[in-house]
Simulated scan of single mutants.
Amino acid sequence: MHVQIVLFDGFDPLDVIAPYEVLYAGGVASGGAVSVELVSAEGAREVVSGTGGLALRATAALDAERPGCVLVPGASGRIGEPGEVPEEDEGSGEAERDEFIPVLLGRTLTTELPALLKTAMARPDVTVATVCGGSLVLAMAGLLEGRHATSHHLGLDLLDATGVHVVNARVVDDGDLVTGSSVTSGLDLGLYLLEREVGPRVAHAVEELFAHERRGVVWRARGPVPAPF
């Protein structure tokens, strides 16, 4: 399985690094059955995150037709409405509104990323995965209507408003769409992808290596619908 992790301006570094390390270690443990790279819609470039100017380098353009997995992170920045002026900026001129997470996520819609993700989601040999606000990128692009997905708890209302069947779970498996909830869920999502695509023995070995125990049950649309408590 080849995994392309997408970088965009303002991405959250932990959303990227957590699954990258898990999947890379899975590749080592499986003798090369998993490979992972950082990509962007624009091609090879240095991409600045939303956390203190930290940058990572995309080594290639996102190939939406390559079999495997495309993983979309969320953004990091200020939490709030784009028009809101933080107290520390009052009296110092116009606020730097681009630091707000909704703006950073919304800006992806002006790039080639939505079209590339639409192509990837249309292919039966591609699994699209997201961490945290990455699912909001897909939802705002109109790509998740009628699907089961999760996101950071602050973004669940937006998912619901775009026609998504919201599931408040750590990881949600909807077939060729696998979504993780909050920032650290990237660890759990990466381990689950290893278990699903390579096997539980490799996933367990990586889990032991990182001394991280996955949280919660991976939600899937299987079994009876539970009665209300």
Rank of each mutant, 00 (worst) to 15 (best):
Y192R: 07
I5M: 01
H2S: 15
G163I: 03
R220T: 07
L143I: 06
A58Q: 00
A205N: 14
G91H: 02
L187N: 07
E81D: 06
A161Y: 02
E112R: 12
R147F: 00
P73S: 04
H204S: 12
E96P: 10
G80M: 01
G77M: 13
M140V: 10
P228Q: 13
N168G: 04
L158H: 01
G142T: 09
D176S: 15
P124W: 08
P228K: 13
H212M: 05
E213R: 06
P19K: 11
Y192C: 08
G80R: 01
F229E: 13
V167F: 07
T119S: 14
G106H: 05
E213H: 10
G186A: 07
T111G: 13
E46A: 10
L158R: 02
G175P: 05
E65F: 02
Y20M: 07
V202P: 15
A149M: 04
L104E: 10
S135R: 03
N168Q: 15
A122G: 15
T119K: 08
L209S: 14
P226D: 01
G199K: 12
I5E: 01
Y192L: 08
S181E: 07
R220P: 13
F8S: 01
E99M: 07
V47C: 05
T162H: 09
S35I: 10
D63C: 15
G190W: 05
L105T: 08
A75D: 01
T119A: 14
P124M: 06
P13A: 11
V171G: 06
D63M: 08
V167S: 12
Q4A: 00
V178M: 11
S182P: 06
V202L: 12
A29W: 06
G74E: 03
E88C: 14
R220F: 14
Y192H: 05
T130F: 09
E21M: 05
E65V: 09
E37S: 15
L105R: 00
E87S: 09
L116P: 03
V171C: 09
G50M: 04
V171S: 10
R196P: 11
V3N: 07
L189A: 11
M121G: 00
G53F: 05
M140Y: 14
R123K: 15
G91C: 06
T162V: 12
T108A: 00
A75C: 11
A41L: 06
G91L: 01
G134N: 10
G142I: 11
T179M: 08
E197S: 09
P19C: 00
D188Y: 06
G155V: 01
H148D: 08
F8H: 00
V72L: 13
R170M: 14
G223Y: 03
G199R: 04
D98Y: 15
V183Q: 12
L56D: 11
S35Q: 03
D174L: 02
R215F: 04
T110K: 04
